[in-house]
């Protein structure tokens, strides 16, 4: 038996990226959302919606790119329910998120029965996004890093770019600054004439788009069909990644990579029967990490000050 050494190879790192991509996307979405002051635990539900619509659109048009668009847009639109409920109607954010998750299961299952005549899984799409995998000339030749980062599929590349964009958006742009202010000092933001409501709507919507993209990744890039149990808790792992990453884009990315690595490692341990440990020990890893992070082991892991705090403007006689 070759032992643990045989697991530690480039393939493991490729698998890490593959497994962490949906988590990364949903986690940076959640970062933007929570930075604007809205708690979002609905990623699981939005992912399911995104995955479903991406697969359906790809199936009926035969074009995975239209599927991608459909998944992203569906995620965005579905997330607006959360925005309306929490921002306009001042519903508790966690409550709304929990309801969103319940609702998404029902909606998808109902539509499955309506469109395909059965729940479960859709037919396979003719072409998946995996077919558009391409190696970046030159860069992909670098040992180890090349195949891991520069020979990838479209949504994986997008996730890399989106991490950087989110970082720039939150740190360097004016809108990003305003959005963060909505989560830290909403009243101050309102006094300088920027609508907190608008910023928060933006935050929720963008996170919906990103979670929808994460869903599309699951159904039309990593697979070629939609299955009901597809998200399988990844939305919650994304939440864990965002928190472990200290409510920052780069932190979320690193945490997601870490969780992806743990998962990839776990499967390979099983293949090789290296150690006879129940796989659950590895599966719970992200959750334990999150508890440790909020327990103070990660120093900077603190939510925005007004995260989850309702903001209401009293309009006299309006």
């Amino acid at each position: 038996m070759s032992g643990i050494a045989s697991i530690l190879n480039t393939d493991l790192l490729v698998a890490t990226i593959r497994l962490s991509t949906p988590i990364t996307l949903a986690a940076i979405g959640a970062t933007i959302c929570e930075r604007s002051g809205i708690v979002n635990i609905a990623m699981e539900g939005i992912m399911i919606i995104g995955a479903f619509f991406a697969a359906v659109a790809a199936l009926f048009t035969g074009n995975p790119w239209i599927g991608l668009l459909a998944g992203v847009v569906a995620g965005g639109i579905f997330s607006l329910i959360h925005a309306v409920a929490t921002i306009t109607f001042h519903l508790d954010h966690v409550v709304s998120g929990a309801v969103m998750n319940i609702l998404s299961f029902g909606i998808v299952r109902y539509l499955m029965v309506m469109i395909f005549g059965h729940p479960g899984t859709t037919d396979a799409i003719p072409v998946g996004l995996k077919a558009y995998q391409f190696a970046i000339p030159g860069l992909s030749k670098i040992p180890v890093l090349g195949p891991v980062f520069f020979n990838q599929t479209p949504i994986v590349y997008m996730s890399f770019v989106l991490v950087v964009l989110t970082l720039i958006f939150l740190k360097k742009t004016k809108t990003g600054l305003h959005l963060r202010a909505a989560g830290e000092h909403p009243l101050a933001l309102e006094t300088i004439g920027v609508s907190v409501y608008k910023m928060r709507y933006l935050g929720v919507f963008v996170s919906g788009l990103l979670s929808g993209l994460a869903g599309a990744y699951l159904s039309i890039e990593n697979s070629v069909s939609f299955t009901e149990g597809m998200a399988n808790g990844r939305g919650f792992i994304a939440l864990a990644a965002m928190i472990s990453g200290g409510w920052t884009a780069i932190g979320s990315f690193v945490a997601a990579l870490f969780f992806g690595f743990a998962d990839a490692f776990q499967v390979r341990m099983q293949v090789f029967k290296v150690l006879n440990i129940p796989s659950e020990i590895f599966i719970i890893f992200p959750y334990v990490a999150t508890v440790l992070a909020v327990a103070g082991l990660v120093k900077k892991s603190r939510p925005p000050k007004a995260d989850g705090v309702d903001f209401m403007i009293e309009k006299e006689g309006a």
Partner: peptide, 25 residues
Amino acid sequence: TPNSIVEIIKGIILFLIVAKYIYIH
């Protein structure tokens, strides 16, 4: 009839009842 309609109804009930602000609004 697909019983997932029940899940949808549950979701709607929750939004309608819990979002008391809708009524205040």
